[in-house]
Design a protein around this nucleic acid. Structure first.
Lengths: 127, 127
DNA sequence: CTTGACCTTCCCCCTACTGGAACCCCCAGT
DNA sequence: ACTGGGGGTTCCAGTAGGGGGAAGGTCAAG
């Protein structure tokens, strides 16, 4: 199957699929005319990547997860370690955003939002 | 004052200060020898930028906020609008991350994390 | 034979910086 | 006078993860 069908089936855009091939995540075959040919396993891999990315795993993690997926002798501890670390970094990001959100929400709350210049948001930024 | 002192006072790194000048956020003077010279107002602006960035405002927002800060005839409604939109995008990011976190936490919880290959994390990615 | 939908590669663009190389400037010490 | 070290400067390249779009090859239908 061609790239657009693979894209439709996996909901990974063609551009992204080409990028994944470029960085060695997938290895579709080539037709004599130069078109990429995707086998079932390639599509399966792309779908795997799409889900892993949707969970926020970085490309490097995806590479390792793919290898573990294909390694029937893997230890689930390794998978769990990667996922746990990722979970930790998600928690850290959430905490950062919550902190920003807290401050910002207070300021927005306190701002009259009218046509006069006095504004606690600006004041807090300049002080 | 030179760039490193401005950096120390504002906690904005020299590299970042140069970048901000390049994109037109600050306009320090120049000494005859080519060194940047930062006036009090430049330092004040950098500190403003540092705080705005710490609240997660993008560079374009910072540009507008700076202009509003300097515009004594500003309407606080404009400031509030920018901050509210930003708050909305922060909330959206938090929601995305929470969704990821939820799924991921369940999977991590369910994974034995031993030396056997069966792993619900992998299973959920391949299915 | 042409049209339109695919496909290809290639290169630049994005955010907001960061690191590093190559080079200039100034002051203190010997 | 020379040297060393700690400023400063510019420019180039790279980051993550692709997106946009140009220039050009391919294929099936009418």
């Amino acid at each position: 199957m061609n790239i657009s069908e693979a894209a439709d089936r996996t909901r990974v855009p063609p551009k992204t699929i080409r990028y994944y091939e470029e960085i060695g995540l997938v290895h579709p075959l080539r037709e004599p005319n130069g078109y990429r040919r995707f086998r079932a396993e390639d599509v399966h891999k792309l779908a795997f990547l799409g889900r892993a990315r949707a969970l926020g795993f970085g490309i490097d993690d995806c590479r390792v997860l793919l290898a573990l997926w294909e390694n029937k002798a893997r230890a689930s501890a390794e998978v769990k370690r990667i996922a746990s670390e990722h979970l930790g970094s998600i928690d850290a990001k959430i905490a950062d955003l919550q902190a920003m959100r807290g401050t910002l929400a207070e300021l927005v709350e306190a701002c009259a939002g009218n046509d006069r210049p006095d504004c606690p948001i600006i004041t807090s930024l300049e002080t």
